[in-house]
Amino acid sequence: MFDLAFYILAVLILGSALMVVTLRNIFHCALFLVLCMFSIAGIYILLEAEFIAAVQVLIYVGAVTILMIFAVMLTHQLTGKTIRQVNDQPIAALFIISSLLVLTLLALSKTTWEVASSSGVSPSATELGRALMTVYVLPFEVVSVVLLVALVGAIVISRGD
């Protein structure tokens, strides 16, 4: 049951991710990115990390990809079908990609992963919120300042003169 859900989500994720990097129409790429992010949220639910799944849907599906679609709409004239979308280094890229994939999967298969004995009970959203407000309160505040700086920076850059 869980296995079947995992395989369906994995096929959805990999198919849509490949579409994102291969399709010629950029708007379709952005739509497949939405599907990919949504399926990854499904994987988080399968892992019983429901808070992370909710944040994934809110931030990635709700904000980041919509921002991407806005950027596609604002820069659309020259991104039509006649323009070549691949750069001049496909052979070198293919070499790097295949060696990366082989190395990571080899390392993955050679390692025996230690798993906690009481595996199966995921940390709940309550514990996560308590940890964010106590142990990790300093990174939490720093990241909010980062968000503020990025907001001001994006406005200043795109305002023009």
């Binding site: 994720i13 994102v20 990097v21 952005a30 950027a71 750069n87 890229a93 990366l100």
Partner: peptide
């Protein structure tokens, strides 16, 4: 594999949004 697909996009595509 998701990470590798992302690397493919960064290395191969020419459009900055992609």
């Amino acid at each position: 594999i998701i990470f590798t697909v992302g690397v493919i996009g960064v290395l191969v595509r020419r459009n900055a949004i992609i």
